[in-house]
Write a protein that binds this DNA or RNA. Structure first.
Lengths: 167, 167
DNA sequence: TCTTAACTTCACAATTTTCTGAAAGTAGCG
DNA sequence: CGCTACTTTCAGAAAATTGTGAAGTTAAGA
């Protein structure tokens, strides 16, 4: 048995939480995310309320307020978390809205757009009639195709989700 | 006018090629790829034959053979390029097969699978009946959904591609 | 079998990134 | 209006990453 009464502080088995947090963060890092944002994000994902304060994050991850600040700024820019002010306090909470965040994930759209731009430039400057130009044109077409497909896919997911989890 | 006769060596306007290579590589880096693999890959993508030798890569990018070796090993592991031995020579060629490489790109499948594993572990260890557990279960469901969709999408792309570019 | 062209591995130096402590900024509340 | 609780910014130390030169390995051709 590993069950126990809920301690007021962190709640649940801090050991298990930490294990998940570090493990999931490691996967995100491997996929290209910076370490600190990854850890902060994983911690939020694993929290029951889906939201933690700066101080809670710092304590749980054993890092300085400065580190939390930087990580959270990054995550907010990527729309993976939102910040909210606790009413009647200058304390801030960072929140992950279950679905909003993976919607953001598919909004790598910005990335795709930049790739497309670079490829278009390449086709132009190397010549659309050269072998290299044709290869890049095909790649470009692929990304444009994917762009459209992703939007449709998310639509299907929302329907699927509603059926499975309720609105 | 920037046109010129084809010099035997690099071919085309080396200036324009380099500009594309460094620009596209920069985008890949921003998306999480290491710098050297990104540069090597971009150089291959921009080559007319779609293939370059180790020496050509080193010269064009002004880097050591060691750097090329490391970059190419990574790219081959990701199935983004393939290596071929030039018959009757110990010289090796690295090649990007127009379509094979972006098929590989969608084979971030391996990445998705690892995320799914981490999430499943999380659901189990934090409890499927806790709020955090439910959030992770929903995220997990999303990734599983995406998994299936990507396969279908690639199928549609292949059809679309054939129509547009011919087999 | 020997020679040698080509690729790979490895230890280290240089660069870049990341995190911290301290100082500065901001906004609630008396 | 100031006090204080919190957050952000910034310079620099520590750590991680990256690319190099040199030595090691492999295999083609004589």
């Amino acid at each position: 048995m590993t069950e126990r009464a809920e301690p007021a502080g962190v709640g649940r088995d801090p050991e298990a939480v930490s294990k998940f947090v570090e493990g999931f963060a490691a996967q995100l890092v491997e996929a290209g995310m910076q370490r600190m944002p990854a850890r902060v994000f994983a911690a939020l994902l694993a929290s029951d309320s889906g939201s933690l304060t700066s101080a809670e994050l710092g304590e749980q991850l054993r890092v300085s307020p400065a580190a939390v600040s930087g990580a959270v700024r990054y995550l907010a820019q990527q729309h993976m978390v939102s910040r909210e002010r606790e009413p009647g306090s200058r304390r801030e909470r960072y929140r992950v809205h279950s679905n909003q965040w993976y919607e953001a994930l598919t909004n790598r759209e910005a990335v795709l757009k930049r790739w497309e731009t670079a490829l278009r430039d390449g086709v132009t400057s190397l010549g659309a009639d050269t072998p290299a130009g044709r290869r890049m044109a095909e790649t470009l077409a692929f990304f444009e195709f994917v762009d459209g497909e992703i939007a449709a896919m998310m639509e299907r997911w929302r329907a699927h989700r509603e059926k499975t989890f309720g609105a």
